[in-house]
Design a protein around this nucleic acid. Structure first.
Length: 425
RNA sequence: GGAAGGGUGGCAGAGCGGCUGAAUGCACCGGUCUUGAAAACCGGCGAAGGUAACACUUCCGUGGGUUCAAAUCCCACCCCUUCCGCCA
């Protein structure tokens, strides 16, 4: 959620930062203009209600004193009966206006950081750097590689659950598990993360805290009969561990990594990546989450991104780092880097990790605050990134490790996790 | 799912219609004392909105209700603990 103070005091600046996302800030029916109008109404009603409340409090105290002293207070009692009715009516109105205002604020995305490049589509994203040598020879798509080796079974996945589900068998199942272990171990042992294990179901408040709700309910799997959802990413439960807490500045930065399954309805993705394992309704991911100070947010983003890159490098997978332009940065983020891994069958780079700084946007929504010594509490800055998406990593290994004889070479770093297996045949 | 108990400030824990935004202890901050520290003593110390600063308003799980007045009484819901049932 955007900062209310800043919304009023830096209205024009913030509007400009939002306009760079392609949002029309002059549309009177748009959230930006509506928020502005609702704020005025809300504040007026609130101040009217407060004036009357002050009167009621003052006289009620007087009544108490008079009664205590055995004096007659009937005049005040009658007068306050009337005031009390008015207060109640005004309070209700003010509360309603405040709720409407907040609801609209919740739908306004995070203003972009000034360093984010301009752009109108993903074509305007900027390549920052490349790593590794992309292979350019003809490589079959991973679904053929996996099916031929008998380790990916898309038909079984479809039978069990529907399209966009896959069954992994033998070496593929083990590879999935090996990747999970390898990634967690690397982040814990080499990058200093504290590992957490969290629920894969989150309630509405938690989903709202990180920004998935209220706007993106259609992307989530909702549980029948409960106000709870399957998590689309570990970011949700891990960040919200600190929901409604005040941390000490000395506790920051907090760095957590977590493995969870992730569930996405992919409602708007009909026809995209229908074959193979690139876009699944359920996939595994190891996620990196930072809670830090406002000052450190941007520099910590570089650090976090580096931790994700380290995994790709250790697996010897060619990749590039791109910075998303204004039009492509997600709702809650202020700045985002994507890591894209080379897929030889498609002769292009595909997203395998997304690392974002959220500034105080999530901290404000989720009520996660920190206090400098002797200072006032303020929202923490949050960051997160995939470290990495495991299913897509598996795809990348199958394709980049594919040999002419149909076998797949396993990256050295994973061989110990595979029981010494060097290649899948 | 059934029964009982409970949700109060960073933590622990009183309060159970007005003098309570909340005793007390711990933690924390400032001071006295001390070569220094500890102890002891003195003072301060919740959050949000609002203000130039005050004032003022709101917040004792959440939402309603009763009352001139609610942390305190009533209703509903949520969560936690214990016991029973079921179960990996």
């Amino acid at each position: 959620m955007i900062d209310r103070q800043a919304f009023r005091r830096s209205f024009d600046e913030m509007g400009k930062a939002l306009a760079r996302r392609g949002i029309d800030i002059t549309d009177p029916d748009g959230p930006w203009c509506r928020a502005s109008a609702l704020d005025t109404i809300q504040r007026k009603l609130k101040s009217e209600a407060e004036t009357l409340q002050a009167e009621r409090n003052r006289v009620s105290k007087l009544i108490g004193q008079k009664k205590g002293a055995g004096e007659d207070a009937s005049t005040e009692l009658v007068a306050m009966g009337e005031v009390s009715r008015k207060v109640k009516a005004l309070e209700t109105q003010a509360k309603k206006a405040e709720a409407e205002f907040t609801a609209v604020l919740m739908e306004i995305p995070n203003p972009l950081h000034e360093s984010v490049p301009d752009g109108t589509s993903e074509d305007d994203n900027i390549e920052i750097r490349c790593w590794g040598e992309p292979r350019t020879d003809a490589v079959p798509p991973h679904w053929d590689i996996g099916t031929d080796l008998g380790i990916l079974d898309f038909e079984a996945g479809a039978k069990l659950a529907g399209s966009r589900f896959t069954v992994l068998k033998g070496a593929a199942a083990r590879l999935e598990r090996a990747l999970m272990q390898f990634m967690l171990n690397t982040h814990v042992d080499e990058h200093g993360y504290e590992e957490v294990w969290v629920p894969a179901i989150a309630n509405r408040k938690t989903m709202t805290g990180t920004g998935q709700l209220p706007k993106f309910e259609d992307d989530l799997y909702k549980l029948e009969g409960e106000d709870a959802f399957l998590i689309p990413t570990a970011e949700v439960p891990v960040t919200n561990i600190y929901q409604d807490q005040i941390l000490s500045a000395a506790d920051l930065p907090k760095r957590h990594c977590a493995y969870t399954p992730c569930f996405r309805r992919e409602a708007g993705s009909a026809g995209r990546d229908v074959r193979g394992m690139i876009r699944q309704h359920q996939f595994d991911k190891v996620e990196l989450v930072h809670l830090t100070t406002v000052e450190r947010a941007l520099s910590d983003l570089e650090i976090l991104t580096g931790h994700a890159e380290a995994i790709l490098q250790a697996l010897d997978l060619p990749y590039r780092l791109i910075e998303l332009c204004g039009a492509d940065v997600g709702f809650s983020a202020q700045k985002t880097y994507d890591l894209e891994v080379w897929l030889p069958s498609q002769q292009c780079y595909r997203e395998i990790s997304s690392c974002s700084s959220f500034g105080q946007f999530q901290g404000r929504r989720a009520g996660i605050r920190y206090r400098e010594e002797g200072g006032k509490p303020q929202p923490v800055a949050t960051l997160n990134g995939s470290g990495l998406a495991i299913g897509r990593t598996l795809v990348a290994i199958l394709e980049n490790g594919w040999q002419q004889d149909g076998s797949v070479t396993i990256p050295k770093a994973l061989q110990a996790y595979m029981g010494g297996m060097q290649s899948i045949t």
